[in-house]
Nucleic acid binder design. Sequence first.
DNA 1: TCTGGGGTCCTGTTCCGC
DNA 2: TCTGGCGGAACAGGACCC
Length: 351
Amino acid sequence: VSLIAHLDADAFYVSVELLRRPELRGLPVVVAGSGPRAVVTTASYEARKFGVFSATPASRARRLCPDAVFIPPDFPFYREASKRVMDILRSHVERVEVVGLDEAYLDLDGLISPKAAMRRLIADVREQTGLTCSVGIGPNKLVAKVASDAEKPRGFVVLSREQACERFAASPPGLVPGIGPKTVERLERLGVTTLGALAAAPDELLAQQFGANHGPDLRRLARFEGAGQLTLDRVAVSESRETTFDCDVADAEELERILDRLTARLCEGLAKADRRGRTIAIKVRLDDFSTFTRARTIGAATNDPAVVGEVARALLREFGASRPVRLLGVRVASFDHAADAGEVPQLRMAV
DNA sequence: TCTGGGGTCCTGTTCCGC
DNA sequence: TCTGGCGGAACAGGACCC
């Protein structure tokens, strides 16, 4: 009884850049950082023909497509454009769940003619922002999402759950969000290479291989059974800052100085959002790409850089990196959001 | 040719208090 | 007083997503 649309802006960062550099239209354009370890955040469809996609290392992208125009990312600019798009969505539809900068779910329940409404909406976005979108419509978020992916750019795909099952029965399981590379590989080793096969796989096999929760989850995904409800206001659970170094860093004092700078930036962001947290964590990635986290929870929520910094430095010293460090990060979680502000924590009485 | 930054959620383990 | 079991919180890691 529910009807949901998923709207996805096509090649969003690149498309936003093209708004201010229209002379690049039709060329392979890649938004990527400039450092030796940067990756591609978005590639135009012309660049994708050369095998350049999101998450392709920038160095590789340059080799695959030396004639592409490389543009460093400008996130404040993309956030602005995103806000304009989302405001248009909210002017058309009451209930909108924003997911990242470039996509959103819309609750179409109760609309007289939902398809026409979505056609008008994307025309409106195009007129007011110059950006094009792909849309999927279905009975739940999962169908809507996969449908919006199916014919992009500028796709418009409407499917029932049964139609989705039929249409994608021969597709690899990784087509569905929630089934990533690791799960795809495990499924392949079991001889399950399509969504149809996964949907038909015996319960016991999946439960035995993937556990009592994840097994049934996979079946539901393969059958396109999913949430019919949106999460309208999502509250942040954590906030973090991290950086990958151009060259690995082995010096402990330098690592602490970098950690301090990350902490300062993180606390600025926390203060701006008026958020405080009780859990402080660091993340360390070594030169062999092994990744570790260490966390400590303190008595009172904070966003004070002195407090966060002291705990973070202690965690880093206790970790004592055994090899050169590639990435360092700091995170604050366990927020005491405004709704809890008046609550007094229960004290445990000693007996 | 290696592999960003910002997140979320789940799971298994450990510890601790009752 | 000792012990066992239980449950919650914290922690670490991993998978996944944009």
